[in-house]
Amino acid sequence: MPVTDPSPALQAAVEPDEAALAERFERTVAAEERIEPRDWMPEAYRKTLIRQIAQHAHSEIIGMQPEGNWITRAPSLRRKAILLAKVQDEAGHGLYLYSAAETLGVDRAELLDLLHAGRQKYSSIFNYPTPTWADVGAIGWLVDGAAIVNQVPITRCSYGPYARAMVRICKEESFHQRQGFEILHHLSSGTPEQHAMAQDAVDRWWWPSLMMFGPPDDASPNSARSMAWKIKRFSNDELRQRFVDMAVPQAEALGLTLPDPELRWDAESGHYRFGAIDWTEFHEVLRGNGPCNALRVEHRVRAHEEGAWVREAADAYAAKHAARAGAEVAA
């Protein structure tokens, strides 16, 4: 964090009180202007953002694992390169987001500790396994597709650093969904075995993707405050509907079936209607009983712990060579 101008001379002249600061904050948000890191902000706003950005960052880096699984086994060199670049992007996106979170006065090491200790979470979608190559396609098409629907509105979030990180992320992610669609398209029009592999993956990922948008609006009472603060722009149900409306015609283009017998076009509303979501499964996964909860966190903790001696070594080296490093900074 930058340090504040140490001279108190100016501050004495104009000392705004809390009410004036709060009023200025509300006015800034209402005017669609951005709140910046060192502005006064309500403590609850700060905490909401830390929680949201940190868990978003955790989702990016845990989300590397299910697909990262297939880097060594990708079936062509072109696919291997694309997947490597994609999983690498996710690490980059995690970094952009941790960087945004740190502007709120927390540090990344602590956020990672909270993730490792289970005191902060990540999206439960990444607790599902990727047993086949088609899962890489389904994650790209459905999971990244749902993520894009969720993320695009955050590019207009009231908190400047988060909004800017999301602009960058959305720009970079535009290829992620497409490569997933392309994988499924090749499989769907390939051999019967490949087609079956694609259908099986879509069957497994469709409902969890819909659950990514969160419980129905009437079960999410506190969303209102995030909406007022312009951290969240659309309700869970609005975003879910938007996703379904996009995905259904894409599934038809893929020649794959979505596993919902109740799925139908409703001309009157101009939307696709879909069946009831089984929230029991969602809450089980959330509670830690998904197929891969333990695996994902263990993998992450192992990498972190096995890396400790490396981080310490670099710190020790930097301390020994502080004079030289200082000279480089000054140059």
Binding site: I50, N222, F282
Partner: peptide, 25 residues
């Protein structure tokens, strides 16, 4: 349902209650 869950952040629903928010640096 106990803890509230919300589609925050990019990849969808995460718990929003009982989540630590760190200590100021």
């Amino acid at each position: 349902m106990s803890a509230e869950v919300r589609a925050e952040g990019g990849h969808g629903a995460v718990p929003v209650e009982g989540v630590a928010t760190g200590t100021p640096t």
